[in-house]
């Protein structure tokens, strides 16, 4: 564990502006603001507009959040309403303790 601020690169795959998509985006934004402010970047990918991109991260379920950085890649699906599980899934929790 280092104190060097890590860069969080997240990809949020959604299908248009569905309620689930919006909820998911709001949830992840809030979680990031709270846990890794200023260190994160969220790329929202609308598969309705770019269906081709779904194959890259093997996306089946939506909404899906993919942690590209830090390595390794992790995937979380759902509207990210369970903050605790998102933090575990992204392994973001340890930052709280530091």
């Amino acid at each position: 564990m280092t104190d060097k601020p890590e860069k969080w690169l997240l990809k949020l795959y959604v299908a248009g502006a569905s309620p689930k998509s919006i909820t998911a985006f709001q949830n992840i934004k809030a979680i990031c603001e709270q846990n890794v402010p200023g260190q994160y970047e969220i790329e929202v990918i609308d598969l309705v507009k770019n269906p081709r991109l779904a194959a890259d991260d093997q996306i089946i379920a939506l909404p899906a959040l993919v942690r590209r950085l830090p390595e390794p890649i992790r995937k979380i699906i759902g509207d990210l309403s369970n903050t605790e599980r998102v933090l575990v899934g992204l392994n973001m929790k340890r930052l709280e303790t530091t």
């Binding site: 779904a54 909404p63 979380i76």
Partner: peptide
């Protein structure tokens, strides 16, 4: 041919989701 890889260990489920990704890929 579209290969869909499902790795249980990679996926964490939090809250509501659907299989729109599959639909979109299939549709595409």
């Amino acid at each position: 041919i579209d290969y869909i890889h499902i790795e249980r260990s990679e996926i964490e489920e939090t809250g509501e989701y659907d299989l729109d990704g599959l639909f979109i890929r299939l549709n595409h």
